[in-house]
């Protein structure tokens, strides 16, 4: 029953800045858009453990290993906050996981790039988590209560992720000539993909207007991207790395940094599944899920057995 009256009432609540909670009436399309967006966010957190997990055993020191372990564990936590927030929309966890592993659900393309050196771990913390923070800070004010609360929690933890990467990159950038080269090389490779994390230009983003109308998102892809660029230019300068964009130029008029054309062909190619690591990532995720099946089964059997014992005893 989606009559105009109900839709108007819903829009009025949104416009008044009210949060929508799981049991409240909402347009079916709002629900579907949230499920798509939130589960995509959750999947990204989970797959995001892979590129960094790749370096845990080869961390350069015990300290860095502890930090990386904690960060990767946080990413798992973020995935779980988001999955449970998505479930409040009436979709089951197992269905979400199925869509991700065997269906058409997407995750952020940034995780389809390889981590080739330890400097990539630094650049990921700085650029990828930096971009994620810009996006999630906005989502912390999203109109859907559970999504907003999950993002508040995520943002609190994510600032450590970015800072540890930025600090490390700064150290490398002021280290030996080899380290400096490694640091710059990683920035060269991660800069453009991290700009793509904000999604297509507003003119090519069919969902944006609707999501903003419903205050699921509060800013457009291009607004967020510009905010990110402005900040990163300053941070790059402070640690002496160069952003690989010859067109980067301060615009006195707007007060923002102009930047060059984003290689969208590459973006779409990776989205379509042809990135360096797409197949590898899916293979690893499916293997983790399938190899864990006996554990989930055993835990259920154990819980069932204990329940029977308790019933017998009482």
């Amino acid at each position: 029953m989606e009559n105009q009256e109900k839709l108007d009432e819903f829009q009025a609540r949104i416009d008044a800045g009210e949060k929508i909670e799981p049991k409240d009436w909402m347009p079916e399309r709002y629900r579907q858009q949230l499920i798509r967006m939130m589960s995509q966010h959750a999947h990204s957190e989970i797959v995001g453990m892979l590129p960094e997990g790749n370096w845990i055993e080869r961390a350069p020191s015990l300290k860095r290993k502890l930090v990386l372990l904690a960060k990767v564990q946080d990413e798992a936590g973020h995935g779980l906050y988001l999955y449970s927030a998505t479930e409040t929309l009436g979709i089951d966890r197992s269905e979400l996981v199925d869509q991700y592993l065997y269906g058409s659900a997407k995750y952020s393309s940034i995780f389809n790039y390889p981590t080739m050196t330890y400097a990539d771990i630094c650049a990921i913390g700085w650029l990828v988590d930096g971009a994620a923070i810009v996006n999630q800070t906005m989502l912390a004010r999203s109109s859907y209560g559970p999504y907003s609360r999950a993002n508040v929690r995520i943002c609190k933890e994510e600032s450590f992720h970015k800072k540890q990467g930025y600090e490390m990159l700064g150290k490398m950038a002021s280290g030996t000539p080899e380290q400096q080269k490694m640091a710059q090389d990683s920035v060269n490779r991660w800069w453009w993909p991290s700009l793509m994390m904000f999604g297509p230009h507003d003119s090519d983003s069919p969902n944006s207007a609707e999501l903003i109308k419903w205050q699921v998102k509060l800013k457009t892809n291009d607004e967020l991207r510009q905010h990110f660029v402005d900040r990163m230019v300053m941070e790059a300068e402070a640690i002496g790395v160069t952003i690989p964009d010859p067109d980067l130029e301060y615009n006195e008029e707007t007060g923002h940094w102009n930047f060059g054309d984003i290689p969208w062909d590459e973006f779409w190619n990776v989205v379509k599944g042809n990135g360096v690591m797409n197949r590898e990532r899916m293979k690893a995720r499916r293997a983790a899920h399938e190899n864990g099946e006996w554990v989930r089964e055993a835990a259920n059997a154990y819980a069932h057995k204990k329940k029977l014992q308790q019933e017998k005893a009482s």
Binding site: D92, R93, S94, E293, R296, H304
Partner: peptide, 14 residues
């Protein structure tokens, strides 16, 4: 949301 034991993958929600 289901606690259907026949579905081996589905642990109940808490």
């Amino acid at each position: 949301m289901s606690d259907n034991n026949s579905n081996k993958d589905n642990w109940p929600l808490w």
